[in-house]
């Protein structure tokens, strides 16, 4: 197992500075989609050196390293390790809701006015990532979709689900807060071959306007399925 990692090389003085392998967890984040086997070997050494294991985390002050370790444990499907890291972060990194705004951040126990952006960035990525998702992001652009949802009144309403299953568009609306429940809302589906010939399953009305399919519904947590009319 590697015990040290190159931090930097100075080609003028020909100096090579090495750091304990823990530092390599940051490298692993970028290596994972490119050379996953080497990244995993480096990660195993770095995590062990950092005290990150299925027993938990020994250094909670290493915010960036711990967040990246959580991220990679999810990317690689290391369920037992992921559970241990998640449990430690859940207890110590101050997950915080602003219910009025529908916003979620991690305070990290830092007692600061603004959530620490760099650490929150990695923690949020870890919250989102699933097995091999980071590799997929890096492999290829998102494929062309039969239609795209546009004009959603975000952040009042978000889409927790928006994907095509064959010729059906599956949507799930996600309200910002209780304050906005029941408000009328609308959005468009653009790029459809024939926007006049669609029907909806769920509480919504459809109309065809200016070449787009317009969906009129209300703000609440509910699902819609759009499918071609028969």
């Amino acid at each position: 197992m590697p015990s040290a990692v190159t931090a930097y090389y100075d080609p003028i003085l020909e100096v090579h500075l090495r750091l304990p392998v823990t530092f390599a967890i940051t490298y692993c984040f970028y290596l994972a989609p490119q050379v996953p086997e080497e990244a995993r070997r480096l990660f195993d050494a770095a995590a062990a050196n950092a005290g990150i294991s299925t027993q938990g985390i020994t250094d909670l002050a290493g915010h960036r390293i711990n967040a990246i370790a959580w991220f990679l444990s999810r990317e690689w499907g290391l369920d037992e390790l992921e559970a241990a890291i998640r449990s430690a972060l859940e207890a110590n990194y101050e997950p915080t809701w602003d219910r009025a705004r529908g916003e979620f951040t991690w305070g990290l126990g830092l007692a600061e006015t603004y959530p620490r952006g760099q650490y929150n960035g990695f923690l949020a990525a870890a919250e989102v990532v699933s097995a091999s998702a980071w590799a997929r992001v890096s492999e290829a652009p998102l494929p062309k979709q039969p239609g795209l949802v546009e004009g959603v009144d975000f952040p009042t309403v978000a889409l927790a689900e928006a994907h095509w299953e064959k010729d059906r568009l599956r949507l799930r609306l996600h309200p910002q807060s209780d304050e906005v429940l029941g408000q009328p809302t609308r959005f468009r589906v653009t790029g459809l071959d024939d926007p006049d010939r669609w029907r909806v399953e769920g509480d919504a009305r459809l109309a065809s306007r200016a070449g787009d399919l317009v969906v009129e519904t209300s703000v609440r947590d509910h699902r819609l399925t759009l499918r071609p009319a028969e």
Partner: peptide, 18 residues
């Protein structure tokens, strides 16, 4: 560092990227 999560979210909701 703020960009990673949103690029991953797009993988989950590919029909909504705005």
């Amino acid at each position: 560092d703020s960009s990673y999560a949103v690029s991953l979210m797009a993988q989950t909701t590919p029909a909504w990227r705005e």
